[in-house]
Simulated scan of single mutants.
Amino acid sequence: MTENPPHPVARTWGNRHDYLPAAGRDFFLPAYDLLVRLLGTHPLYDELVTQAELAGELDVLEIGCGTGNLTVRALRAAPSARITATDPDPRAVTRARRKAAGEGPVRFETAYAQELPFADASFDRVLSSLMLHHLDDGTKVSALAEAWRVLRPGGRLHIVDVGGADQPEGLMSRLTGHRHAAAGARLPQLVEAAGFDTTVVATRRLRVFGPVSFIRATRPGE
């Protein structure tokens, strides 16, 4: 994977990579899992897995898996599913692979959400947790188009991400200067524009992240 120049459509926050590392900077990665636990994100992963209804022999894809927190929960909830997890950060994928060892069969791929290396109509579910808010709108559109492409008719995209309509920004957005809640409020419209039947299932508020929304998006059957 190239590290220079930066990917033209990715927000890299000054990183030398053409992606944003899972922890924002490579040297923060060892502390990433502790950080997300302190931020209170683990219940979000559990809720997303429940909403995705992964029972049965499904083909499931996770985009932006990071260090595998959602991946492990999906493996535990869906022992009969065939799970694939992707992330552009090879260091995060390495940690995710170690974390998932012994939990069940899973395939890891180093890949961008907007450039998925899979055939059309390969999956029944696509999962995304707290990743899309790092992308600009153009990249989100490309990633959502890829999710549509790899889903089978009737398949579903399940998202939990920062943002909510008419919700104030959280502490993290104010500290970093990134208007995540405002950008995230547009996400359901972008999902709908990609062709999905889209529902905002729930909105929660975390102390640091601010508002987060759960989105269920179905690719209409043919």
Rank of each mutant, 00 (worst) to 15 (best):
T176S: 15
I159S: 00
D166Y: 04
R107H: 11
E57V: 01
N4M: 11
V106F: 03
W13T: 02
R125M: 06
R219E: 01
G155H: 02
Q189L: 13
R97Q: 15
E169W: 03
Q189M: 09
P21I: 08
R174E: 10
T84V: 15
P5M: 11
T2E: 13
M172D: 05
P211T: 05
G195Q: 08
A143W: 04
P43H: 09
R149P: 06
R216M: 07
W13C: 10
V191R: 03
A145F: 00
I215N: 03
V141K: 13
S142K: 15
P117S: 10
R107G: 04
G164M: 09
I63L: 14
G102T: 07
F196D: 01
G64R: 05
R16I: 10
G170R: 03
V208W: 12
P211W: 07
H7L: 08
P211V: 06
P220S: 09
E57Y: 00
P90S: 09
H180D: 14
A81M: 10
A31W: 12
T41S: 12
R25G: 02
Q51C: 05
L34Q: 10
L116Q: 07
P211Y: 06
R25Q: 14
K140E: 04
V36D: 01
T94Q: 14
R16K: 12
A113M: 06
I215C: 03
E62G: 03
A194N: 06
R95C: 00
T50Y: 06
M172W: 14
A113Y: 02
H178L: 11
G24F: 06
E146C: 09
D166R: 13
A101W: 10
Q51W: 11
P105S: 12
F209K: 01
G64F: 06
Q51T: 02
G195K: 09
T86S: 13
L135F: 15
V141T: 15
N15I: 00
H42L: 14
A85T: 05
L144M: 09
M131A: 14
V93W: 02
G163A: 10
H180T: 04
L116M: 13
A78D: 08
L127E: 04
A55W: 10
L171Y: 07
F209G: 00
D87S: 05
V208I: 15
A165G: 00
E109H: 11
A181D: 06
L157D: 05
P21M: 09
P8T: 10
D166L: 08
E192Y: 04
I159N: 02
P5T: 11
V212C: 13
V60R: 05
D197L: 14
R216N: 09
